[in-house]
Design a protein around this nucleic acid. Structure first.
Length: 212
DNA sequence: TGAATGATTTACT
DNA sequence: GTAAATCATTCAA
C-alpha cells in the first residue's frame, strides 16, 4: 500500500536540519518544544507539536542508558550521528522515542514525552483504542509512540527525511523545567532539572505535572 | 541459566 | 492512592 501524499498543513514547513540536533543535549531538548514531529505511514500522516521533553546525557549521566559508556545492541543508536531515532521497549509493553543529539561518540538523546496532535488525529484515536478524553492520545512517552505508530521498525531512522522527521513549528512558547520523571535511582543526576515542558499545554504528561 | 528491573499505562479501591 | 500487566535487557553465577 503506498504512502499518501503529504498534507498541505505540513508540506510548506521546513524540515529541521542535522545542525539542529548536533548541539548539547539540553539545548536540543529545550529547542524541541514547539517543533512538530511527523510520521508518514501507509495508513496516513500523523503529526504533533512537541510540548514535553527530557535530556539524557551519557556517559556520566547515571539515568541515561549510555551510562558508563556501555555500548550495547539496545543503545547503539545513541552513539551514532545526531538526528537519528533511538527507540526502546520498556516495562514489557511500551515503546519510547528519543532523538539522538551531539557529536558522534557522544551518547546523548532527548526523550519526547508529550505532543499536541495537529495532523492525523483520527488515526491516532484509532491506534490508541479510542480513549475517552482527547489528551490521552499523546500525553505520555508511551502513548505518543502508540498514537504515531512508532515502534522497533523506526529504530535508527534518519530524522532529517521522511518517513519520520521534525519540521519547524512555532517557537513562541513559555518553557518550564523540572527534574526528570521516573529516574529517582540516579542519585545526584536525578535532581537535575532536565525535563522541559510547556506549562500551558494540557497534553503535558500527568506524572510529575507539579514543579515548574 | 536465572533473577531483577525499568525514561509506563491502566484499572481498580 | 496502589497494583497489575508483561518482557527485553542486564547482571550475577
Amino acid at each position: 500500500m503506498p504512502i499518501p501524499p503529504i498534507p498541505q498543513l505540513l508540506s510548506d514547513k521546513r524540515i529541521l536540519p542535522r545542525s539542529f540536533y548536533r548541539r548539547p543535549v539540553t539545548t536540543v531538548a529545550r529547542a524541541c518544544l514547539g517543533q512538530i514531529l511527523v510520521h508518514a505511514t501507509h495508513r496516513g500522516w500523523v503529526a504533533g507539536i512537541i510540548v514535553e521533553t527530557e535530556a539524557y546525557a551519557g556517559p556520566r549521566d547515571r539515568a541515561a542508558h549510555s551510562y558508563g559508556g556501555r555500548r550495547t545492541a539496545r543503545n547503539e543508536a545513541m552513539f551514532g550521528p545526531a538526528g537519528h531515532a533511538y527507540v526502546f521497549f520498556l516495562y514489557g509493553m511500551h515503546y519510547l522515542f528519543n532523538l539522538v543529539t551531539g557529536a558522534v561518540g557522544q551518547p546523548q538523546a532527548v526523550l519526547v514525552r508529550a505532543l499536541e496532535p495537529c495532523c492525523g488525529e483520527a488515526l491516532m484515536h484509532e491506534r490508541r483504542g479510542h480513549p475517552r478524553r482527547r489528551v490521552e492520545l499523546t500525553s505520555g512517552p508511551g502513548k505518543l509512540c502508540q498514537a504515531l505508530g512508532i515502534g522497533p521498525a523506526e529504530y535508527g531512522l534518519d530524522l532529517c527525511k521522511p518517513p519520520l522527521f521534525l519540521v519547524e513549528g512555532c517557537s513562541a512558547r513559555t518553557v518550564a523545567c523540572s527534574p526528570r520523571i521516573g529516574v529517582g535511582y540516579a542519585g545526584e543526576w536525578a535532581s537535575k532539572s532536565w525535563r522541559f515542558f510547556d506549562p500551558n499545554s494540557p497534553f503535558v504528561s500527568g506524572a510529575g505535572r507539579a514543579h515548574g
